[in-house]
Structures are given as structure tokens and as C-alpha cells.
Design a protein around this nucleic acid. Sequence first.
DNA 1: AAAGACACCAACCGCCCAACC
DNA 2: TGGTTGGGCGGTTGGTGTCTT
Length: 315
Amino acid sequence: MGRHSVFVKEKTRKGLWSPEEDEKLYNYITRFGVGCWSSVPKLAGLQRCGKSCRLRWINYLRPDLKRGMFSQEEEDMIITLHKVVGNRWAQIAAKLPGRTDNEIKNFWNSNLKKKLIKQGIDPNTHKPLSENHQVRNETNYTDKASSLLPNMSNSAEIEQPFHFNSKRSFNSEAITRQLTEVSRNQLVSKQVFDPLFLYEFQANVNPIGPYVHHHNQIEGNQDFGFCSNFQHGHMTTESDISDSSTSRMSTSNSSNTMISHYSSAGIQINEMLEWDADNKIDSLIQYPYVGIKNEENFSNNNPLSGENLDVFHHI
DNA sequence: AAAGACACCAACCGCCCAACC
DNA sequence: TGGTTGGGCGGTTGGTGTCTT
């Protein structure tokens, strides 16, 4: 594993994180902030590699994570962004406050991909499956989800994308809905250690609001950490801190400075400063997802390819 | 009730890149 | 300038829960 092999020598733990490990990491980060990840395990008393700690913090422990089910707006946003930037999950996640790239990636692979296929849309090209028929026949198509597709040599099936041979999936809207519900319930019920619970608690105390850069919050509150009466196993069924209408968020390790405004659904709407990411994705976001658009400014500031323009019109 | 199939997701792996020396 | 290190990212995998037979 290259440079990380050094951690293997020190017998780092792997696999699922225990609540105790979460507690250690959470307490450390909330007290000292995010610095050098490679030194975090040692300082926090963990037998993990720094990379693993970083991932755990980013994907699970971070207080500003939203978690819970994806809203319809978020789903649409992901699909739209994916059409523009493809599998650049980090870029997509950057536009969805409280969501991680990993979460979005998983959601895409487990839900949205199938949803699109069910609608007769190729999740990779975002074009009708029938259009991709020829292309697929010419290329070695290894996509896992696409392997679920019916045999494309049968044109009748192409025109009836809902008629899958699979015993389980894609036979009805109800099944899909049920599956989605199940997965969403899992998403919520799997939590064991829930820092968000604490965070919500503190958010009620902190008049500044929950989305103020958590380093500020951490540095300004040395007592922030585990409540003495915290019980493992407690979980919140849905964290609706995103419902706070206005918030600010910045990323600690990035030169990007974002001052974002979020809709009630948690979608970042506007006001991005010094955002140096792909112009394509910015172009999309600069126009409120709720539908206001200004094509003149759009074309002046952000030249688009024909395909991207299609996306724009789609919005 | 049990076994197998399937779906989901947390976490790992490996690559890349920027910063630093 | 080249080597090293740390962080970020996307792809993949393994564990676990749920469903079906």
C-alpha cells in the first residue's frame, strides 16, 4: 500500500469503528481540531492509521453532517451534477451541504443508478438507453449496474426498460419504493455513536448557529465533547439542522472560501467566493436550483459545451 | 426455520497531486 | 530538481441486514 505500509507495521486496527474509538477521535478533534492526520492516531490514543481517522471524521463524525434520507431536491441535484461532472463525487458533495462524497457515491450506486435505468436512462451518459445501445455494443461495458440491464440485443426490451427479467428488482414502482425505504431506514438506524445528537444539543445553546465553522466552535468551547450521560445506542431518527435557513460553512484544508446560503432542503444556493473548482459545476450552481436563471450572464461567465447547456436548460 | 441471494454502506486501497525539504 | 510526505479522491470490497425460496 505504498507509504501507508508504515502503519501496518504498527499494527493498526482495521474494520468497523467501535463507539470507544469514535469517542476518542471525536473528543480529540473537537478539542484540538483537524491538523496533521498522521499524528492524530497517536495523540488520540487510537490504533488506526491517520487516513482511516480522517475518513471516519469526514464521513461519520463531523458535526455538520446531515445524514438521513436524501430529499427529492438533493436527488435531482445529484443527478444533474452527475450529468455534468460525472463520478467526481467530491465536487458533487461540495454542492450538497452536510453530505459526503462517500455517501453520495453510495446513494448513487445503490439508488439513483437503478432509478435512472428504470426510467430508461443510461446512468453513465444520462441519455436514453436506446441511444446508447450501439455504443454499448461497440465498447466493453463493465459497469456493474449496467450488467443488470436486459440483453440489449433485444430491441423490444430496450423499448420497455421496465420489464426486467430479474426476479427481484425493477418490476414495479412499489418494489423500488420499498427498497428505497428500507435503505433509508438502514441509513438512520445503523448509527450507534451519534455526535450529531450532541451537536444538536449544543446548537441549541450556541446562538451563532450550528453551521459556523466547527473549528471556531471547537476552539471556543473546550468542554465540547462527550456528555457524561451520553449513551451509546442513542440515535436521532432525523437530523434537521439543515432546516436552519441560513448558514455558513468553510472547509479547513481548502483555499476555497465559501459563504453559502442554503435552502430549506439544505441545497446550497449561491454566494460562492473564490471557488476554483470546475467551471462547469459552478455554472450550474450559480443559478439557484429552485429555477431562477439568467442565461445571458451564464454564457458570459461560463462558456458551456452543448451538453452542459442541455443540463442548464434542464434546470 | 434455514439457507442462499441480494442490497446497502462503511471502510479500505491505490493512485494522484501539492507542499515541503 | 528530485524525493518524501500528507491529504484528497474515486473505485472496490467485505460485513451485515433483509428478503426470498
